[in-house]
């Protein structure tokens, strides 16, 4: 398949994915907004006023980058896992598997769809946040890079989950039992130095902390909680690893070809 034909195949998958989440916008775009408004109201406004400062800034400003990142992670992941698993369940994935579209184009198409939804929801949540607090981005390049890599990472992970899933129940296991606890404990709502000693060490073992903290540093500037360069490098290694693993599963036809 020539490069131009591969580009057309990629655009077909990407367009289909965008249309899918826009068609069901009530399920895909609205719920994260409602959830985030509640977070802003309860954690940011009501509880936040009592907390005062966190990480050197007022609590509302502190929590906004974490909540944006949480929305990006959840939506990039859930878009790909639900879309690809549905295609597997209805066997419509066979449309792609019998075609000459190379596996990496299939993977990129679905991941691009997940990134698009993650970033779309991230942008909407940012717009909602503006109603509660001013958002000034200190380092636009770093902020965009981190949010893009994060969406890429979790969209790829969503595809891995979809490949392994045997039922619709299986596509909610990782988000419920892994992603949610790691996100909540990954510095979205608190600074690491607010924790007692041993819990600080435990939190530093949580990869989500590096995503959230680097993203927060990109928006707020000031003193970073983690080494920013090491974080970016680590995120890139994770992105490459998960993408390569998803590619390996697709090439082997794991749970797709008998």
């Amino acid at each position: 398949m020539k490069a131009q034909e591969q580009a057309r195949a990629f655009m077909t998958i990407f367009r289909k994915e965008i249309r899918r989440f826009l068609r069901i916008w009530v399920q895909t775009l609205i719920p994260p907004v409602i959830t985030m408004v509640l977070y802003f109201l309860i954690f940011g406004q009501l509880i936040g006023q009592r907390i005062g400062q966190m990480g050197g800034v007022d609590y509302m400003s502190f929590v906004v980058p974490g909540l944006i990142m949480m929305a990006v992670i959840n939506n990039a992941y859930s878009n790909v896992v639900s879309s690809f698993y549905s295609a597997k369940f209805t066997k419509s994935v066979e449309e792609l598997l019998v075609s000459p579209t190379p596996n990496y184009v299939i993977l990129l198409g679905y991941v691009a769809g997940g990134i698009a939804r993650g970033l779309a929801v991230g942008a909407i949540v940012t717009a909602v946040a503006l109603f509660f607090t001013p958002v000034h981005i200190d380092n636009i390049g770093l902020t965009v890079l981190v949010v893009f890599l994060t969406a890429f990472l979790f969209a790829s992970a969503g595809l891995v989950n979809a490949i392994y899933a045997n039922s619709f129940d299986d596509i909610s296991i990782i988000p419920t039992f892994v992603l949610t606890p790691l996100t909540y404990l990954g510095g979205v709502f608190f600074a690491v130095d607010a924790l007692p000693g041993v819990w600080q060490n435990v939190t530093y073992a949580n990869p989500i902390l590096y995503l959230v903290s680097t993203f927060r540093y990109g928006i707020l500037g000031g003193q970073a909680e983690v080494n920013v360069l090491a974080s970016i490098f680590g995120i890139m290694v994770f992105v490459a690893g998960v993408f390569a693993y998803a590619m390996y599963l697709l090439s082997r036809g794991k749970k797709l070809r008998t």
């Binding site: 398949m1 057309r8 195949a9 655009m11 077909t12 998958i13 449309e95 075609s99 000459p100």
Partner: peptide
């Protein structure tokens, strides 16, 4: 129509 058009896309056909 989308089912048929998309399949053309997977074969690299111009839209």
């Amino acid at each position: 129509k989308d089912i048929v058009i998309n399949q053309g896309g997977y074969y690299g056909m111009p839209r």
